[in-house]
Every structure is written in structure tokens, then in C-alpha cells.
Design a protein around this nucleic acid. Structure first.
Length: 799
RNA sequence: GCCGCCGUGGUGGAAUUAGGUAGACACAAGGGACUUAAAAUCCCUCGAUAGAAAUAUCGUGCCGGUUCGAUUCCGGCUGGCGGCACCA
């Protein structure tokens, strides 16, 4: 009988469709396991080979957990709002909702073809009003708590998407999505106060099991730093407050700088106001990209006629405006310490300002001495002779006592720009009333359904397409009943994905986003696998939302995800990123058609270290197909022997159970598969019993579920391979009775001997020294030292 | 510039948890069997150099250190990848 993989695979997929063996049960007594993958964005291109890598990995883990007796929730859904769909709809003159429906249909078919054990009954779609009702509800709760607010701010404006972007969506000065130029614009935008959670987002990283690279990237992005705010008086009676992480260097502050956007001085008796104004105007015109990425020659203008007074030295120091100081960080003004800050040093050189050394140890003639952990304070009045650490403590106390400043923690994290001038997103459930301001629509009116519009093209002016729709715009104020205008911006794509995992626990609930009972049972997510590219986007955003929901008593846990892992990217055969424009995209459908789903699943897991990038190899796919062919040829006929593990293969089988089980837990799917391949090779050397094959099929079933199920049935084993308990090994049976150990002379391998496991060191040495070959080498020399590593080696040091 | 990760055969990658026989498993290549032939399948070889062979020497980016012993630990360099970046 031939291995008709296509027939076998569709047969089992039909059975799963009908019998729903992968359904998760609410209210079960079993221990729960919540496995999560990042739900896909249903693009027009369909699945690409990047998708199956994380999906298959978590499918394997889920299937193993089911076999281990867990009630497993492994759900799937679609993150379907967003720009690509809208752009595609515009281009092809379709409605985004229709495009979304078609794409979801295609994705669903493809995912089912890959044989994933998803609980399809809990499938969510972020564009479904029954779903986004709760996205809007969460927004209203945030608005209620003052965490959602509207502000006129300089925003990142994508010149191609005609839309604002969050800081997280701007990569190297261009739009993360389309690569177009991002410019600065002043716009009134809805904002979410994620900064209020900055400290907790940092602290609680200690509570979760994330890879270090993820934790450090989030910490880096949040950018916590400890320093002090210090007040500097000006000669015109103003107070300039600055933020510094190095208050100890205050005696070296020889000038001050304020950012061009800020007008921190009330008493503006500037002698050269034209010059200052011109500089401010020029800075305003620059994009962020120009301000940060281009030539970093320091520019600036001195504000003439006003000086600041250094509170430590009581000396008058000049004040400059310069665009190397950012308005958005700290207080928007700094005390410049050119001796110990390279940027200040460059500026001081440029403008011929005094550079004073206050920490000894560097050479401030050449460059600023920044890394002065070991330096000693000099030229610093009360701080002289102290270490930097001591000086920081002392000056901070002094500032507080003198009422000149205080310790202060700052974050790089900015509030989240939450509105988008696009059609295909969740409407923001707010109206604007002349009398009452921004007013929430009543909860009872949710969902606020996205209306059908004639034209949903973007506008150059930066207005949402909804703004052109009068029936939409006109509303009445829920507070005073007077005329009001609806918000026309929509939410960003990250909104729906910030809480979707919660919906899975109780996806049909119409009274609440999920019942308390379901949340108590299922959350937190036990294992969440997703891409590194979401570390400072989705992963951070959803941690923020979750913490908010915890604070208002909706969810029972502080953190959404107990454990996070990340897959590496799949590159094209040429080592380049796969992309349509390069024409090197691999379509999973083609692989499945030619080799079958099980081969596809195996290869994508065998390709290399799961956490690292790996290039696709069309040839190597054959190796995995060959493995399944060999397995099929070995075991489609009824085998001889008992249902017990045979004595012949006892060692190999027990070792395999241990190795495959452990490897799945630590994401070493490639070596797990290698172990299974080696086992089949063993079975070719010496015929296996039915029991040996039973274990093999059970171990294989999470990886290649269709063929495992088919062979399970052909052998007449009870029930389904997927439902059979995960095999157990006996530690004693994973140990060989004898072992080949290395014999080294002076650390160099000189031979091997076979000895009994765990025998006495003395006995091993005796065997080794009596070995013919070793004897010849030792002959005539004295053994000065003998090192024995049990079951591994003997090393003899000769003289 | 700062933070994190990585460098192993012709190729993808094992071994790195705790220092202990480097190259598992697979791809490609070469040889053989079967076949009219090809494909498929099965068997063998496969880091480099020398040798008929046994074997010897070298070999995990480079230099050095610790150690009986280093792919693994430490220091320095070099190349690559990812993130952050005028954040005071």
C-alpha cells in the first residue's frame, strides 16, 4: 500500500472537523493549559511559510499537553482591521468588509489544511461588532479613568498612509508598514496614558518568564532612568527646571540649553529675539529624521540678555536654545556639563564655552569624561573628594534641603497616540459637545457600528473618511442633549489585539468581555509564542491594557502571559527576506500539494534552531518526506510482536521518550525530530515490535498528526494516537549497561574502552592501563596523575 | 555610541544546561545493488593533510589566559545580525 498523503490528510481533517477533538472545555476539573499564538492578519496573499513555524510549534506543545491530560485551550482568530485591507479595497474598488470576509475564508481553509488542533468554535474576528463592542468598552473605561485623553501634539504623520503613527510604528524615520517618509505635524489626537504604567511595566517583567532579549528590549524601550530635577533661577526672575541623571556634576554646569519648541521663560526680554525666532522656525520644519539621523553638528543660538544662575556655584551662565535638546523628554531643558557629557562637550567646543572638570580621571581636553564610575569629585565645593556615588547622594540631599530640586525618575516611553485617520478600524465611541466637551457615548449604545460609506479613501488633509459623512457626524450630547459631533478617527490596529486572548476564554459572551469564571480558570496564558517584532508594540500594549483591566477588577491576574517565546524568521533560499517584490516567496499550499502537510510541518520544525532565523531549502524538504515514507513502509502492515516495548529497542525507545519530551519543552523541535528519525533508522536495522512502533507513533503524533493517526489505526491500536497518553520512560532504562569511554593521555584522545556503567574508578583505571594499545603508550613512563570522570573518560598524565 | 545575540564540514545544523570522545540528524556529492533504462528504494563513503592500511598531525572566526582537558569559562580583537539612539 502506498503512502497516499493527500487522501490520508484530508480524511483525518474531516474527522477532526466533525468530531471536534480539540475543543476546550469551560468548567472542566482537569488542569488547564492555555497556549497562544499571535493571531494572523488575514492579508490578501494568504498564508506564507512564516506563519506555520510558530503555529506548528505551539500545536505540537498543545497536542503534547492534551496527551498529558490537560484541558487545552489553543485558539485562533483574525486581527482583521487595518491598513493593508483598506488599501487593497481601495485599489480593487471593493468594500473592506468584503475583502476581510474573503481573506478570512481563505486563511481558515489554509489553516485547516495544516492540520492545527485549534478550537475553531472560539474563533474571534476583531472586525465583528460583537467583538469590537468590547474593544470600545475598554476604551470607554480608560476614558472614564482619565487614561484616554485628547491632546494637541506633534505627531508622526505618514505621507503615504495619510495617517498618524505611534512612536512604536516609526522605524528609522520611516513608516514601519509602508516605508514612506514620516513628517511632523501638529494634530489633536486621542492618547492613551501608557506612561502611567511605565514603572509597573518595568517592574513586573520580574514576574514573567520571557526570554532575556525580550525583557531587555522592553526595558530599553521604556527607558527608565533615575536622576534629579533642579531649579536654576534666571537673571530676569524666571525659574528654569532641568532634569539630569548626574546631579553630582552640577559644579561643572557652565551653560544651559532649552529645546526650540519650548518657551520656558516668561520674562522674554531677549536682545536677539529675531535670531532666536528664526532658529525655532527652522527647527520646527525639520522632520524627526533630519533632527536625529543627519549630520550631528551642534547648532544653537544664545538667548542674549538673560542668564541663569548655577545654584551650586552662584555663577551666571549663558542660556542657549538648541535642537539637541528634546522638548518631549525630561523638562525640555538641561544644565550642560561639557566636561562629562559628550554632546555638551561638542556644543561647548562649537560655541567656545568653558569646560570644567568636576570628576578627575579622564582627559577633558580630548573628550568628555562620561564613564566616571571610579572618578573622584574635584572643583566641586562641598562634593570635593567624594566618589560619584557619594556625591549624587549628598547633592540630592542638599538640593532637597535647599528646596532647589528633588530626586526624579524619568522614562523614554511616551503616551500612545491612539487615533487613526482611516476608515477600517473601530470607531472611537466619543462625541464632542460645544458645551460639555468630549463625552462618552453610553455603554448601552455599544457597539458603535462602523457605518457603510460611499468613499473610504484617505484624504490629504488628514481627515478620516468618516468626517465626510454627515449622518455619522451629527449626534446629540449624552450629557446635555444638545447637538454634538461624533469622533471621526478610528482606533489603531493594535487595539483589537490588545485583549483578544481574553475573549477566547468565553468567546460567545454577550454580557461581558468574558465571564469572571472563565477568566479565573483560563488566565493567565500559560505559553505565548510570537515574533520579536511585536516586543515593543503588541506585547507592550497588551501588557498595559491587561494591567488596566486588572486595576478595574475585570481580570484576575497582573500579567497576561506567564511565558513568552519567540521564533526566528524564515528566509528565502537565497538568504534574503521573502517578499513578493523579490519573487522568492514560498507558498505553503504548494509544499502541501507536493509533499503533504505532515512533511511541511516536520520540515518547518526541522529546519533549524526554532529561535533563530533559518533559510528555506526546497531540497531539504525531501528529507522529511523520505522519513515519513520510511516510517510508512515499515509499519503500514500489521507488525509482529507484543504491544510492549521490545527488549531489542528498549534502550533506544526509552531514551527517545525522554529526549523528545524534553526537547519539546525547550523548543528544540529540530533535535526531537532527529531523535525520531534515528529511531526509525534503528527499526530498519532491527525489526521493531508493535509496542515499539506504538510509542514511536505516539511521540510523532504532535509533529505529524495525520500519518500517526492513520498508522495507529492500521495497527489496530485503541482510540486515537492524539488521545493516547504521552508515553512515559523509566530513567533506569535510558541508561546503557555498558559504555564506551574515552581514554586520554595528557588530555589527548588515545583510544576508547568499553566498560560497565557506573563501575568503580579503580576498576576503570585497571582496565584502561591493561588495554594493549594504552599499555604500549604508557610503557616505560610513570603515571603521575589519573583523572576519572564517571562513565565519560579516563585521563592519564605521564612523566 | 549603548544594549542583546551569533561565528562549528560543500550546506542546514548537533554537542554549550554543569568544561570531558566535536560534527548527531538531514541535504548535497561520490560509489555500489536492483532495473532494458530512468525515477524511486536499499547499502557504503563523506572535516583537512599524509598513508595501501593501522595510524599520526591539524581542525569549532583570530590572539592570549585558566585547566590534566576549552566549541563550552575569562580577557582582548575581528566579522555578522537584531534592537535603541542628541533621552541629558
Amino acid at each position: 500500500m502506498k503512502y497516499e498523503f493527500l487522501e490520508i490528510e484530508s480524511k483525518w481533517q474531516d474527522i477532526w472537523e466533525k468530531e471536534k477533538p480539540f475543543r476546550a472545555i469551560n468548567g472542566s476539573d482537569k488542569p488547564k493549559f492555555f497556549a497562544l499564538i499571535e493571531f494572523p492578519y488575514p492579508s490578501g496573499e494568504g498564508l506564507h511559510v512564516g506563519h506555520p513555524r510558530p503555529f506548528t510549534a505551539m500545536d505540537i506543545v498543545s497536542r503534547k499537553r492534551r496527551k498529558q491530560g490537560y484541558n487545552v485551550l489553543f485558539p485562533i482568530g483574525f486581527d482583521a482591521f487595518g491598513l493593508p485591507t483598506e488599501n487593497y479595497a481601495i485599489k480593487n474598488k471593493m468594500h473592506p468588509a468584503d475583502v476581510t470576509r474573503d481573506n478570512i475564508k481563505r486563511f481558515t481553509e489554509q489553516l485547516k489544511m495544516l492540520g492545527y488542533g485549534f478550537d475553531w468554535d472560539r474563533c474571534v474576528d476583531t472586525t465583528d461588532p460583537d467583538y469590537y463592542k468590547w474593544t470600545q468598552w475598554i476604551f470607554l473605561k480608560m476614558f472614564e479613568q482619565g487614561l484616554a485623553y485628547k491632546a494637541l501634539i506633534p505627531v508622526n504623520w505618514c505621507t503615504s498612509c495619510h495617517c498618524v503613527l505611534a512612536n512604536e510604528e516609526v522605524v528609522e524615520g520611516v513608516c514601519e508598514r509602508c516605508g514612506s517618509e514620516v513628517v511632523r505635524r501638529e494634530k489633536s489626537q486621542w492618547m492613551l496614558r501608557i506612561t502611567q504604567y511605565a514603572q509597573r511595566l518595568v517592574d513586573d517583567l520580574d514576574l514573567v518568564d520571557y526570554p532575556d532579549r525580550v525583557k531587555s528590549q522592553q526595558r530599553n524601550w521604556i527607558g527608565r532612568s533615575v536622576g534629579a530635577e533642579i531649579d536654576f533661577k534666571t537673571t530676569t526672575g524666571d525659574t528654569l527646571r532641568v532634569y539630569t541623571t548626574r546631579p553630582d556634576t552640577i559644579y561643572g554646569a557652565t551653560y544651559m540649553v532649552i529645546s526650540p519648541e519650548h518657551n520656558l521663560l516668561k520674562n522674554w526680554t531677549v536682545e536677539n529675539s529675531d535670531e532666536v525666532k528664526a532658529y525655532q522656525d527652522a527647527a520646527a520644519k525639520k522632520t524627526d529624521f533630519e533632527r536625529t539621523e543627519l549630520v550631528r553638528v551642534k547648532t544653537g543660538v544664545e538667548i542674549k540678555g538673560i542668564c541663569a544662575i548655577n545654584p551650586a556655584t552662584n555663577e551666571e551662565i549663558p542660556i542657549f536654545i538648541s535642537d539637541y535638546v528634546l522638548a518631549s523628554y525630561g523638562t525640555g531643558a538641561i544644565m550642560a556639563v561639557p566636561g562629562h557629557d559628550q554632546r555638551d562637550w561638542e556644543f561647548a567646543k562649537q560655541f567656545d564655552l568653558p569646560i570644567v572638570e568636576v570628576v578627575a580621571g579622564g582627559d577633558i581636553e580630548k573628550e568628555a569624561y562620561e564613564d566616571c564610575d571610579e572618578g573622584i569629585m574635584v572643583n566641586s565645593g562641598i562634593l570635593d573628594g567624594l566618589s560619584v556615588e557619594e556625591a549624587i547622594a549628598k547633592i540630592t540631599d542638599w538640593l532637597r534641603d535647599e528646596n532647589l530640586g528633588e530626586e526624579k525618575v524619568n522614562f523614554k516611553l511616551r503616551d500612545w497616540v491612539f487615533s487613526r485617520q482611516r476608515y477600517w478600524g473601530e470607531p472611537i465611541p466619543i462625541v464632542f459637545c460645544e458645551k460639555c466637551g468630549y463625552v462618552a457615548i453610553p455603554e448601552s449604545e455599544l457597539p458603535l457600528v462602523l457605518p457603510n460609506v460611499e468613499k473610504y479613501e484617505t484624504t490629504e488633509t488628514g481627515e478620516s473618511p468618516l468626517a465626510a459623512m454627515e449622518e455619522w457626524l451629527e449626534a446629540s450630547c449624552p450629557k446635555c442633549g444638545g447637538p454634538a459631533q461624533r469622533e471621526t478617527d478610528t482606533m489603531p490596529q493594535w487595539a483589537g489585539s490588545s485583549w483578544y486572548y481574553l475573549r477566547y476564554t468565553d468567546s460567545d459572551n454577550s454580557d461581558t468581555l468574558a465571564s469572571r469564571e472563565a477568566l479565573e480558570y483560563w488566565t493567565p496564558v500559560d505559553w505565548y509564542n510570537g515574533g520579536m517584532e511585536h516586543t515593543t508594540l503588541h506585547l507592550l500594549y497588551s501588557r498595559f491594557w491587561h494591567k488596566f483591566l486588572y486595576d478595574i477588577g475585570v481580570v484576575p491576574t497582573v500579567e497576561p502571559y506567564a511565558k513568552r517565546t519567540s521564533q526566528g524568521m524564515i528566509l528565502a533560499e537565497d538568504g534574503q527576506k521573502m517578499s513578493k517584490s523579490r519573487g522568492n516567496v514560498i507558498n505553503p499550499d504548494d509544499i502541501i500539494k507536493e509533499f503533504g502537510t505532515d512533511t511541511m510541518r516536520l520540515y518547518i520544525m526541522f529546519i533549524g534552531d526554532f529561535e533563530k532565523t533559518a533559510p528555506w531549502s526546497q531540497r531539504a524538504v525531501r528529507g522529511c518526506k523520505r522519513f515519513l515514507d520510511r516510517l510508512w513502509n515499515l509499519s503500514w502492515e500489521l507488525l509482529d510482536g507484543t504491544d510492549e516495548i521490545s527488549e531489542t529497542h528498549e534502550l533506544a525507545v526509552h531514551k527517545a521518550i525522554k529526549k523528545v519530551g524534553n526537547d519539546i519543552e525547550i523548543l528544540k523541535f529540530n533535535t526531537a525530530i532527529a531523535t525520531l528519525m534515528a529511531l526509525v533508522n534503528d527499526f530498519y536495522d532491527k525489526a521493531p515490535s508493535r509496542g515499539d512502533v506504538k510509542v514511536l507513533l505516539s511521540l510523532l503524533s504532535p509533529f505529524a498528526p495525520h500519518i500517526a493517526e492513520e498508522l495507529w489505526k492500521l495497527q489496530g491500536f485503541e482510540g486515537y494516537a492524539a488521545a493516547s497518553p504521552w508515553p512515559e520512560y523509566e530513567e533506569s532504562k535510558t541508561q546503557e549497561a555498558q559504555r564506551e569511554i574515552a581514554v586520554q593521555i595528557g588530555g589527548k584522545l588515545r583510544g576508547t574502552v568499553v566498560v560497565d556503567m557506573d563501575i568503580e574508578d579503580d576498576t576503570v583505571v585497571e582496565i584502561v592501563t591493561n588495554d594493549e594499545k594504552i599499555k604500549n603508550i604508557i610503557d616505560g613512563k610513570e603515571i603521575v596523575r589519573t583523572i576519572v570522570v564517571k562513565n565519560k573518560l579516563v585521563n592519564l598524565i605521564l612523566k
